[in-house]
Design a protein around this nucleic acid. Sequence first.
DNA 1: CCGCATCCTCTCGGATACTG
DNA 2: CAGTATCCGAGAGGATGCGG
Lengths: 140, 140
Amino acid sequence: METIIDNQRVSTQKKLEKMFGHIDYKNPPESCPVRDVMSVASDQWSTLILLWLGYFKVLRFNKLQKYVYGISNKVLSQRLKVLEAEGYLNREAYPEVPIRVEYSLTPFGQAYVVKLLELTEWMQKNSPKVLANREKYGLQ
Amino acid sequence: METIIDNQRVSTQKKLEKMFGHIDYKNPPESCPVRDVMSVASDQWSTLILLWLGYFKVLRFNKLQKYVYGISNKVLSQRLKVLEAEGYLNREAYPEVPIRVEYSLTPFGQAYVVKLLELTEWMQKNSPKVLANREKYGLQ
DNA sequence: CCGCATCCTCTCGGATACTG
DNA sequence: CAGTATCCGAGAGGATGCGG
């Protein structure tokens, strides 16, 4: 048990080393891969879109907008375009009248959702702790 | 091999079921736990602060601002306040002259960084794929 | 039905100056 | 050193109307 925790601690440190060890704050890299590629992960809307697509496999524009409630059609189409361009999802348009467009995850997107979900699940499990702390601090 | 992938697929679906299965988009919950608690995860600055603290264990305000390069002192202090209030980090002030303040992760914050790092690492590993896709789409 | 274009608001966050 | 206070600009994003 001790060794497992210890191993985890060590491997975590190694990952951090690999990620940050080479960065010199006096000469910050103008483009940071972590910040760049994590931009999708750091976007609430993109996260929700991907998770809902993971759940339903296939969704049309209007359905998606209903499930990701609160998102405007403008923002939804923006996010979909980026997510498609970065390889997370497929866009399939059927030239019917009226037109039908279906969105679904690519294998890459599915793999990402698996990873994302581990974090989200952990968050959900620990959310009571966060909420309790917030109250103790009188935050809201 | 097939069964491992299959098991993973099934467990992913179960997680999604648990997370979204109860949501009716006609009566969207006014407060969504996923969106609420994920707000820290969806913030680029908070993510970087936590990762750097994971790397260095203890950092003072000015050092932190240097490593999380580009962040203003205003935003840094805002984020630190929230992260402290939600239980991710400790703030220790030493009444010297000039004052010294040290920030470090709580055990909870450490556990979170372990999870966060798995995602970040995956992202970093797969960033070439994302970048390649972007180019193919002529995005930047 | 699927979006794009427009307008317009409003918040976030950067810059700077200042205090315990 | 560790922030707070204030001002201000850019840009994200909501609402709406229209077109393919």
